[in-house]
Amino acid sequence: MDRRRTPGLSSLSSNRLQTHHYTSHGATLRSRNAQSLETQLSVFQSLVHNFALTHSKDIRANPAFRAEFARMCTALNIDFLASSYHREAKTSSKGGKGGAGAGGESIWASLLGGSVHDFYFNLGVTIVDICRSTRSENGGLISLSDLRTHISRGRAIGSAMTVSDADIEQAVKALEPLGSCFGIVKIGHRSLIRSVPKELNTDQSTVLEAVQVMGYVTVSMLQLNLGWGRPRAVAVVEDLMADSLVWVDCQAGENEYWSPAFITGGGLR
């Protein structure tokens, strides 16, 4: 006898029973799914935890490794630098995806004991230090590569570290909330760290851009290539010189104005 084809009222009740079973089963499945996801997440979290703990030295020491780690974090939508001072915002945004994570404190602060963003703060302090000490030489504009050589040389014993350009940019960004005048300016193809609250006018940046290309400029070069009058060209280079942004070389016939960024790069000729 085929039970499924029962006619009459009894079929109605069994139908209802069936739907009920389906929904309850669905609910169990869903909750089991959520549960397994949660376990997976917590496993993943503890793995990342262990990973960060065992490799925290590498994260600090190896720029390529740190970049990959940071890339992974950005892929997961985790901004580990921001986590330290946007703690509230962090937790709420984390709550959505992290679930089991962060009760009250940011994941990264608890996971890494603050070592990663400590790293960027330390780097920031080092950068400020270097910018200050080289200010009289380069007028407060220092190129990224220059800064990197300074950092890798280290001031105090043991303070030398290898960093990438991305690290420096990150660290300079971390300085922004302090309301300081630190920032990154782009002149030509090069990024420079600016540590003076000075705005360059168009003429000055044009000249600096030319300096980046050639290594130096002369007044007559400016006159020829930019079609400037002599007084204008002279005024601009003298302005730049007064701010230590260029150095003058009087031994080449006509005065040549060099960018101090070329001190570490070596002369071009």
Partner: peptide, 17 residues
Amino acid sequence: SFPPFFTLQPVATTRSS
């Protein structure tokens, strides 16, 4: 190897460095 290094800079701060 920086040519202007061999010319004493006229600007005081640059000169001191």
